[in-house]
């Protein structure tokens, strides 16, 4: 398979076939909700839809998101080769209805019709020491992206100071503000520290973790566990209908901050948590 075709297949999988860890998490949430509640009904519909999308190879959600690629490649590889293949794959994926055309020029409001635009698809390149190429894609929906937010601590309205307790407070606030608007139950990616840009970047890349995967930093792992429990007490529930499951998981990571700044970036991923990975090694393609 050539590079463009293997990336096309990666996009098809991301859009139509929800990863196992997410499906399991949604099934558990269905079992956990009480019989006869709207929340249970929502999960039933979600699970039916996920299965149907996989069978028919059609998008789980019509908002197939912004295309975000993360590529790790060995020394000596050309970035251009990958960006060209990605563009061609995105165009073909749009023609095959794996993707909705989602690249709009903000000045003219014109939709390009093929998912190609300035910085669309967006590609993060990273060179690494392995002799293989890893291509990861995330389809990031617009509704959930709109409820993402960034706080700077201290945040006086919540008496949130510059410590993990302050971080905890603003995360709870963000989820209450989001209600069902980001297609709850969401998964949160949190970046602590860094600057305005890197805090969001760190929050987004957390979405490549598997549901249930805790941070290697014990203090952060503790906060993740606490927030998983706390946020699910808010009774916002799936779609904001009320219920026991408001988030599927919370992934937090930290990085160095400037002495004067303390940012907390919160990215919200809808329940249709779409991301896939492929690895190219010795001419072979391996999908996760």
């Amino acid at each position: 398979m050539d590079l463009k075709d293997s990336i096309l297949e990666l996009i098809r999988r991301a859009s139509t076939d929800l990863s196992e860890d997410v499906v399991k998490s949604l099934s558990d949430a269905y079992e956990n909700e009480d019989e006869g509640t709207p929340a249970r009904g929502v999960f039933k519909t979600i699970l039916e839809n996920v299965e149907m999308a996989k069978d028919k190879s059609t998008p789980i959600c019509q908002d197939t998101g912004s295309l975000l690629f993360y590529i790790d490649f060995p020394e000596g590889e050309s970035e251009k080769k990958y960006s060209e293949a990605i563009e061609l794959a995105a165009i073909e994926a749009t023609k095959k209805q794996y993707l909705r055309p989602n690249a709009v020029d903000p000045v003219t409001s014109k939709n390009s019709g093929n998912n190609i635009g300035v910085n669309a698809p967006y590609i993060h390149f990273h060179q690494w020491d392995k002799d293989e190429v890893r291509i990861r894609v995330m389809l990031k929906g617009g509704g959930s992206e709109n409820v993402g937010t960034q706080y700077k601590l201290p945040f006086p309205p919540l008496k949130a100071g510059r410590d993990l307790e302050g971080v905890r407070k603003v995360i709870i606030d963000a989820v209450v503000n989001a209600q069902g608007l980001g297609c709850a139950p969401g998964t949160l990616g949190i970046g602590i520290g860094g600057d305005r840009i890197t805090s969001y970047a760190l929050s987004k890349i957390q979405f490549f973790r598997k549901i249930g995967e805790r941070s290697s930093d014990p203090k952060i792992a503790e906060l993740e566990k606490d927030l998983n429990e706390t946020l699910n007490k808010l009774q916002i529930g799936p779609m904001g209908f009320g219920g026991k499951t408001t988030v599927l998981d919370v992934f937090i990571s930290s990085q160095a901050r400037h002495p004067a700044t303390f940012f907390v970036a919160i990215s919200y991923m809808c329940w249709a948590f779409r991301r896939k990975t492929m690895v190219l090694k010795n001419g072979e393609v391996i999908y996760d």
Partner: peptide, 13 residues
């Protein structure tokens, strides 16, 4: 009327 967000394939049916 609230529809189930994300249930794209099911609703298209």
């Amino acid at each position: 009327f609230h529809a189930i967000g994300g249930a794209g394939t099911l609703i298209a049916n």
